[in-house]
Amino acid sequence: MRFRISYYLLNLQVRERIHSYMAKRNKFKAFWKKMRSKYKLSFFNENTLEEVWTFRLSRLGAFLFFSALVIIIFSGAMYLIVGTPLKNYLPGYLKTETRVKIMDNALRIDSLNQAMQLNDAYLKNLTNILTGNVKIDSIRNIKDSLLSFPTDSFLTQSQATTSFMQRYEEEEKYKLNVLNQTIPTDGFIFFAPIKGVIKQKFNPENNHFGIDILAPKRVSVAATLDGTVISAGYTVDYGYVIEIQHSNNFISIYKYNAELLKSIGDKVSGGEVIALTGNGTKDSFPPLVEFQLWHMGQALNPEDYIAF
Rank of each mutant, 00 (worst) to 15 (best):
Q200M: 08
L261P: 01
R99Y: 04
V241C: 03
N119L: 12
R167A: 12
I306K: 02
A23Q: 09
S42A: 07
K124R: 08
D283H: 04
V236A: 08
K101F: 00
R140C: 02
N248T: 01
R4P: 03
I242R: 01
N301G: 05
H19C: 04
L260C: 02
E243I: 09
G61H: 10
F63V: 09
K255S: 11
S42Y: 07
K143F: 14
Q13P: 01
R15L: 14
L64R: 10
I264M: 02
K95T: 15
S158I: 00
S220W: 04
F28G: 02
P85I: 09
L86Y: 15
V14R: 11
A62S: 10
I136W: 03
E303K: 12
G76Q: 06
L126G: 04
N177K: 07
H295D: 03
P150R: 10
L69G: 13
I72V: 15
L64N: 09
Y305T: 01
I242E: 05
T131P: 02
L293G: 05
S220M: 07
M1G: 13
P85K: 06
L10Y: 08
T48Y: 05
D104M: 03
V236I: 08
L146S: 04
Y238K: 11
L123T: 09
V273T: 13
I264C: 00
A160S: 13
D152S: 14
Q159A: 13
R4Q: 11
K175I: 07
L49P: 00
Q245M: 08
I306M: 10
E170V: 09
T185S: 08
F250L: 01
F43K: 12
V134Q: 10
K29C: 06
I71R: 04
S158L: 02
G187K: 02
E172I: 11
V82L: 12
P184S: 03
F209Y: 14
S247C: 01
K87C: 04
I102V: 05
E169W: 10
A115R: 08
S58M: 05
